[in-house]
Structure formats: structure tokens, C-alpha cells
Design a protein around this nucleic acid. Sequence first.
DNA 1: CGCATATTATTGTCCGACAATCAGACAGGC
DNA 2: GCCTGTCTGATTGTCGGACAATAATATGCG
Lengths: 245, 245
Amino acid sequence: MFEPLGYAPAYLRLSEAIRDRILRRELKEGQALPTETELARQFEVNRSTVREALRKLESSGLVGRRAGGKRLFVTRPTRESVGGGLSQALTLHETRVVDVWEALQAVQPGIARAAALRRSPEALEQLAACARRFAGRRGDRESAVEDVADFFNALGEASDNPVFVLLNEPLLRLLKPSLAVIIDRVPQARGRIESAQKHIVDAVRDRDAETAATWMTRHARDFRRGYEVASIPLSTEVGQDLGVA
Amino acid sequence: MFEPLGYAPAYLRLSEAIRDRILRRELKEGQALPTETELARQFEVNRSTVREALRKLESSGLVGRRAGGKRLFVTRPTRESVGGGLSQALTLHETRVVDVWEALQAVQPGIARAAALRRSPEALEQLAACARRFAGRRGDRESAVEDVADFFNALGEASDNPVFVLLNEPLLRLLKPSLAVIIDRVPQARGRIESAQKHIVDAVRDRDAETAATWMTRHARDFRRGYEVASIPLSTEVGQDLGVA
DNA sequence: CGCATATTATTGTCCGACAATCAGACAGGC
DNA sequence: GCCTGTCTGATTGTCGGACAATAATATGCG
């Protein structure tokens, strides 16, 4: 009949107060936060309490430090911070490679389509550069995987849609380990990827949304085929060791 | 030429140490964390430092408290906690309703397809229940919006893919305010939604993946039409007030 | 056994302290 | 003029201890 009357510890209300100010843009990106002592004075709490609140904001990526710096600044959550959170959540939800693949399969064609429609010349060049880098690289599994991820990320950027950019990152992060195995074990993988990237770049250059989407669909299907040829069980959980030395 | 040599404060290394144990499943979900004093003793740091580390874990959703409880337990990040983080990130990235819509358009058909292929009887019933609830409700904009979100969430659950489940939440959260406006201003919106949900439920029941995807595509397109009819500019930023009292 | 009550443990918050170090001012040497 | 070293103050990271509120647990009683 009655709900528990809400009590929230000070550190929580504090972090919410500051978070709201950031979301409301009253504290703008790049702006330095007041010092801990100052915050403690203004909110009339102890500095320890302030620090607990700041740690919360810090790990949501709303505030951060410049390299080697001491003061905290208002930042917008980066791809990396968002991706880290989401991918660790997915890891704990017993996500399997097939789940990630399915999501990729569902979302990437849409990204390719959007990228083809809206890519800027600069974004196109970035994308093409990624493809070239992948194609030009022999050996070295790890860098190849990075290049593939960069390609997808560049495509996300080209779509000029922050939703795609941020959704891409965690998926790629979870994909990487299994992709490394595929590149190792499937000889023709590099060639297939190279070819797909080439066609996608061309379609994006020509602003041909449907061709971009089609090739991306094919590209994604190739990954699935890669799992089979590399004999990675589709039910392998992501974030687990795949037995690669 | 030289990289900065990495130093990390103790509270950070501490939170990473605990996080790793959780990701590695050495600390299992539902298990109680040691008390702050105990952690301080084991890691040989001060309790304040432990508390800062715990606040970080808390806001990544890796540890949490049972309602009214005092001790911390290992938890897996919920839809809500992930969704909150992602949607606040998107808000700060100046995401517009059209961006969210585009992502929805890209991903929902895939979810519908997956749901049709794999739905359990229980998940189907859940989904149907959401559709019924929406259809049976007259007036009350807020509940209607919730019902629509519940429908999408139920579909995500039915897909049995944690990636879809977790990706859905933030998109819906950002969609809600504008959806409320649409339902308010577009008389035929409820009918269109009702009809689309009905067709999707039927297709999912019949395990007809393509029909489910097709109807979802239509459903998503309707939303876009809704924006136009409700004269919500597509470039409206999400997380901003839409001028609804 | 179930239930009220007393004990203990644990968290939330505060205070004060100190070393490390970052930022800026300032002076000296090339 | 620019680089280098030095000094000073401000700020963060960490520590120790303290205490009230209350959740968790044990205790006693019917």
C-alpha cells in the first residue's frame, strides 16, 4: 500500500545534482569543475562526500581529467567509455558471439545506408583510408583486427549519427577476439573482407545507399561463415578466452 | 616520442581489481561483497579509498544494493542502468530525434525477425499482453507511451538476444518524449500503432520472420510520419523540453 | 516455533591531517 | 627571446579516527 519513502544518501543526490547541471548544459563541456573544497563548501557537505559523488560522475564519463592534469573537467562520454560500459554489461549477460553477430547483421546495413546518404568528403576519405590500411597490411593479426574495427567505426562516423557511432563501439569490442581467430584460421578471410570493404567504400562514394547496404549484408554474412570455417562455436560466450595464445 | 608513464590512483586500481573479479565470474552475481572495512584491510588501503572505488562500480551497475539494504551485492547491469548511461551520453552528443528514429528503423526489423524465429511461448504471451494493454487503454498519454515502450522491450526479450535487449532501452527512453507529443497531436496515431502491433504479434506467433520484419519497417516509418504530422522538427534534440505541459 | 527485544556490524558522514604534484610566478643563464 | 631551475600556493590522493543511524543478527520469551 505504501512505498518506501525515498531516502538517498548525500553522495548520490550530489552526483545527481551535478549531473543534471551537465545534462542541462549549465555546465558546459570543457569547463573546469569547481575544486573539491569549493564544492564541499557550496553543497555544505564534507569533501569525502564530494569525492564519492565525483567518482560516480567520473565513471559515467561525464567528467574527466586532461592527460596528466589534476582538475576535473566536464566531458561528454566518449565512444570508449560508453563502449566499455555496454560491453561489460553484455559480458555479464552471457552474450554469445552469435548474439553480437546478429546485432551487427541487423544494424550495420542501416549504418551503411545512412553513411552513403550523408557522408562528408572528409568522412569518405577516412573510410577509404581504413580500407587501404587493412588491404596494405600483411601478417600481424592484431593490427588487422584493429583495422577492421576502425573501418566500422569510420562508417559510423560517416553516417553522422551519434547513435550509430556509440552503438558500434561495444559491438566491435566484443567482436574483436573472435575476429582475430577467424583471421588466423581462415586463409581467405582477409581477401573477402578487403573486397567487401572496397565495394562498400565505392558505394558510399557514389552515395548509392542500397548497394552499400547490400554489400554490408553480405559482409556480415561472411563473418558468420567465418565462425563456421574457423570452427568457433556460435554459442561461445564473448569476453571468455577463445584459446588463442 | 615518449608516452606518459602510467600512474593510476589507488581508488581506480581498486575498482578495476574488483571489476575484473566480477567480469571473471570469481565474484558471482547475487553474492555479497566483503564489507568496506574488510576490503580496506585486504587491499591495505583506507576505507575512504575503498568507498571511492565502490562508487565507481556502483554507477557501472556492477554492484548494487537490495531495496532498503545496507550491504552491497554483485549485480549484473540492468537494462535501466545501461539505458540511463547510454541515453545520457546520447543527449550530450546532441542527438536529434531523427537520429534515434533512424537507429530504430535500422535495428527494430532485425529484432522482430529474431523474435519471430526464437520467441518462447512465454515471451509471446508477454508481447501479446503489451499489445492488448496498449489497445485497451483510452486517454492518458503517459501510460500509452509506456505501453509502446513495453511492447518494444517485450519484443527485445522475445528475441532472446541480450544485445537487442540492452540496445533497445536507451533508444526507447529517448523516443518517449516525442512519442508522447505524437500521441497527443496525431489522432490516428493510436490506431496505426495498434494495428502494427497486432500484425507484428501475429507474425511472431506464426514464426514468420519476414512478415514481422516488414511490419516493423512499416511501423517505424509511421513514427517518422508522426513527427511530420505532429510538426515536431526532425532536428529537435532529444533530452530537450518539447514544450509539452 | 514465532515474535519482540537487545547487540553488534556496517554504512554514511564528518573532521582534520599530510605528502605529492600541478600551475603559475619569477629569476638566472645561454 | 627562450629555456631552465626554483619557489610558492592550490589541489588532489590518501590516511586515521570518530560518531550517529540503522540494518543484520543474536537473544530471550511466550
